[in-house]
Design a protein around this nucleic acid. Structure first.
Length: 340
DNA sequence: ACCTGTCAAGTCTGG
DNA sequence: CCAGACTTGACAGGT
């Protein structure tokens, strides 16, 4: 099985390349010249997109073929107080350049709208803001000229005292979205509420691919047995991606491989927290299990040390290769693992 | 140059 | 019913 690694949002190796610079609404409100404030927001967004392009070029230089954009590229993008500001028009060329580079260099990209995007919510205003947020993220992918293989990864949301009811509400409310938005989404199991089995069931029903987070699974396994994940659930998760490839007319798995998230617990006292780096051995163990049924997979690292963690992981994989642990390093961001 | 409290948004817990 | 925790990078305002 081929495995490509990616990292999230920012680089620790590049200087002055934050893709998430912002301005608070309080500061904007204090300005006398509102127009100047809006132009400042646009300039910050331009800089965030320039930083994003730098990060993509840096990734390419290190042979890293997967990256998740910052969700904060445009400051205050969906804030009510800046309406009817339309930031997209002015930023279109910058978005096109970013998307064009990713496509040309074969870098798989995505967004991860954060925890304000909750389709299980019982509150109509929260649902409306969730839709607004999703539409915003889809808009950015469209401006980048990226097809439906570029996704927004989200969680199901809260349980509100009854997980079954919340799950049904998620399915109901998510299904109401138009296909344009639905087909831009992947669903990920979370670390507190919806475990792998529950998330997979919902993903299958609404017809979107599922992203497996193996760290979230470790801290929120539900009643899933030791071997059940790899033997029973992983093939079903894999299948959600196969269905999506068929829908998109993609013949080869490398055009849209299943995706997982990997990170290591911060500490024994804070197992849900993300550590600076990712432990190679337990990750390799999982990957070799998945390799029994899957030939290609993308693995997003969610470590505090971002790209530095990815480089370190590749070094550690090289060492495991030399110890004959069933892994071969192919390039700076790709390995091949042999099935267990 | 560096430190600390705050930031648009949601949900859960405990009082 | 409400305050605080959760979690995270960056601002904003101060020294």
């Amino acid at each position: 099985m081929i495995v490509r690694f990616g990292f999230v949002a920012m680089s620790l190796l590049l200087e002055n390349a934050s893709p998430s610079r912002t301005m608070t609404y309080a500061t904007l409100s204090k300005l006398d010249d509102r127009e100047a404030g809006i132009r400042k927001l646009e300039r910050i967004a331009e800089e965030n997109l320039q930083s994003t392009l730098r990060i993509l070029k840096h990734s390419k230089a290190h042979e890293i073929a997967m990256y998740r954009f910052s969700s904060k590229l445009i400051p205050l993008a969906t804030h009510e107080g800046v309406a009817p500001w339309n930031p997209y028009e002015a930023l279109a060329p910058a978005f096109r350049e970013v998307g064009g580079f990713a496509k040309e260099k074969g870098i798989r990209v995505s967004f991860h709208p954060d925890h304000f995007c909750v389709f299980s919510t019982p509150r109509p205003e929260v649902l409306q803001n969730s839709e607004k947020d999703l539409i915003h993220h889809v808009r950015m992918l469209e401006l980048m000229n990226l097809d439906e293989t570029a996704k927004n990864n989200i969680h199901m949301g809260g349980a509100y005292g009854d997980k079954v009811v919340a799950s049904e509400r998620f399915i109901e409310q998510f299904s109401r979205l138009s296909p344009t938005y639905k087909h831009r989404v992947t669903l990920e199991n979370d670390d507190k509420t919806f475990n792998v089995k529950e998330t997979l069931a919902a993903a299958e029903i609404v017809g979107v691919p599922m992203v497996l987070d193996i760290h979230h699974h470790a801290v929120n396994p539900g009643d899933i047995l030791e071997d059940e994940l790899i033997e029973a659930l992983w093939p079903r998760i894999d299948h959600t991606w196969q269905i999506e490839r068929i829908r998109l007319g993609l013949a080869d798995i490398s055009q849209l491989p299943p995706k997982i998230h990997a990170s290591s617990p911060k500490s024994l006292s804070d197992p849900r927290g993300h550590a600076d780096f990712v432990e190679a051995e337990p990750l390799l163990h999982f990957l070799r299990g998945a390799a029994r049924t899957t030939s290609y997979l993308d693995c997003m690292l969610e470590a505090k040390s971002k790209d530095a963690a990815l480089l370190q992981l590749m070094k550690d994989m090289k060492e495991l290769e030399q110890n004959g642990q069933g892994v071969r390093v192919i390039d700076g961001g790709t390995i091949e693992v042999t099935p267990l």
